[in-house]
C-alpha cells in the first residue's frame, strides 16, 4: 500500500471513530471541548505543514485565526450576509494579507523569524483591543449569527460537532494530499537544506510563501468556524499565548507528522480543563507536563507511539526467532 493510501485509510477509520463519539456521549460541556479540539486540529495541521514540512516557524498564527473570526463576524453582523459567504471572504482577505506579510517575513530565519511573526500577532492583538469602534474592544463582539442550511441552524454543541469535525478532517485530508505531492517533497527538501533545494531547481521562496498562505487560510477558516459556533468572540482568545499553544501542539504531537497535529491538539487542548481540578496548582502542573513531554518524548506523541509499535513488533519477532 502506498503511503498516501495508508494515510487515507487511517484517516477514514479515525473519522468513523470521531463521528461515532456523539452516539455514546452527548454532554454539551465535553462536546464543546471536543469542538475546540477540532478547530485546533485545523490550525495545527496547517502549522505542521509550515513548521514540520517546510521548516519555517511561526508564532503569529493567532493573528490569522483572529482575522478569520473578526472579518467574518463583522460582515455577518453589520451587513447581514450569510455566514458561509463571509467565511469565504474572510479566507480570501486573510490569504492576501498572508501573502503581503509572508514575502518579506519568510526571508528571515531562526530567532528573527520567531520575533517577526510574534510581532505581527502582537500588532493584530493590540489593534483588536484599541479599535473598539469596530471590534468592540476588550469586551469583543456578541450575537454573531450561526451557520444555517435553509432554516436548519447549527445552534447547539452537538450540531456544530458534525460541522467543525467535518472541516477538521477535510483539512487533514487535503494536507495529506499536499504532503504526498510534488509540493510536499519540495517542502521537505527546503527543510533539510534551502541551498540544496534551490540547486535542484525548487523556487524556495515561492514554496515557502505558498505553504505559509495555506496555513493562514486554515487558521482563518478555523477562526470563522469558532466565531459562528460560539457566537461570541473577544481578543483574549487570539493573543500570543494562543499562537504559542498551537505551535506547542505541533511539537508535542510530533513535529514532522500530520497525525501529530491530531494527537497534539487532542492532548493539549483539554489539559487546562482537566487541570482545573487542581485549582491554584494548575499552572505549575501544566508547565511541568508541558516540559516533561518535550524532554522525554522529543519526537512527540506520534513519534512515541510509532516507536512503541516498532519495539513491540521487534520483540515479537525476537520471540519467534527464539522459539
Amino acid at each position: 500500500m502506498s503511503p498516501l493510501a495508508r494515510d487515507r485509510l487511517l484517516l477514514l477509520t479515525m473519522g468513523a471513530m470521531i463521528f461515532s463519539i456523539p452516539l455514546v456521549m452527548r454532554n454539551p460541556y465535553y462536546l464543546n471541548v471536543l469542538n475546540i479540539v477540532a478547530l485546533n486540529v485545523l490550525v495545527v495541521a496547517g502549522l505542521t505543514l509550515l513548521i514540520g514540512y517546510a521548516g519555517q516557524i511561526s508564532l503569529g498564527h493567532g493573528g490569522f485565526y483572529a482575522m478569520g473570526a473578526y472579518i467574518s463576524a463583522l460582515l455577518a453582523i453589520h451587513l447581514g450576509w450569510n455566514p458561509w459567504i463571509t467565511t469565504g471572504i474572510a479566507m480570501a482577505l486573510t490569504g492576501m494579507i498572508a501573502l503581503i506579510i509572508g514575502i518579506p517575513t519568510l526571508r528571515l530565519r531562526g530567532h528573527y523569524l520567531v520575533m517577526a511573526t510574534l510581532g505581527f500577532n502582537l500588532i493584530v492583538y493590540i489593534l483588536l483591543i484599541q479599535l473598539d469602534d469596530i471590534t468592540g474592544g476588550p469586551s469583543g463582539l456578541s450575537r454573531i449569527p450561526y451557520y444555517t442550511i435553509g432554516t436548519w441552524g447549527f445552534t447547539t454543541d452537538l450540531r456544530c460537532y458534525w460541522l467543525v469535525w467535518f472541516f477538521a478532517l477535510l483539512g487533514l485530508f487535503l494536507a495529506f494530499n499536499l504532503v504526498h505531492s510534488r509540493m510536499g517533497r519540495a517542502l521537505m527538501a527546503i527543510r533539510e537544506s534551502e541551498v540544496a533545494a534551490s540547486c535542484l531547481g525548487i523556487e524556495t521562496w515561492r514554496c515557502k510563501t505558498e505553504v505559509f498562505i495555506v496555513s493562514a487560510l486554515m487558521a482563518s477558516l478555523a477562526g470563522s468556524l469558532y466565531a459562528h459556533y460560539m457566537s461570541f468572540i473577544s481578543p483574549k482568545t487570539f493573543d500570543i499565548f494562543y499562537s504559542i499553544e498551537v505551535v506547542a501542539m505541533v511539537i508535542v504531537g510530533g513535529i514532522g507528522s500530520l497525525w501529530g497535529a491530531l494527537l497534539g491538539s487532542a492532548f493539549l487542548t483539554p489539559l487546562p480543563y482537566l487541570l482545573h481540578f487542581f485549582e491554584e496548582y494548575k499552572d505549575l502542573i501544566y508547565g511541568a507536563i508541558f516540559m516533561g513531554v518535550l524532554i522525554f518524548l522529543p519526537q512527540g506523541l506520534a513519534g512515541g507511539l510509532v516507536k512503541l509499535y516498532q519495539k513491540r513488533r521487534l520483540m515479537s519477532q525476537l520471540k519467534k526467532v527464539q522459539e
Binding site: 520567531v114 508547565g287 508541558f290 516540559m291 524532554i295 522529543p298
Partner: peptide
Amino acid sequence: RLAKSKETVVLVFITIGASIFIRGG
C-alpha cells in the same frame, strides 16, 4: 540537559514550559 532532542525548537519550547512553571510557582 535532560532533553533527549537537542533541536532548537524543542529546547526553546522547554523554556516556554519552564516559564509557565515558574509563573505558576
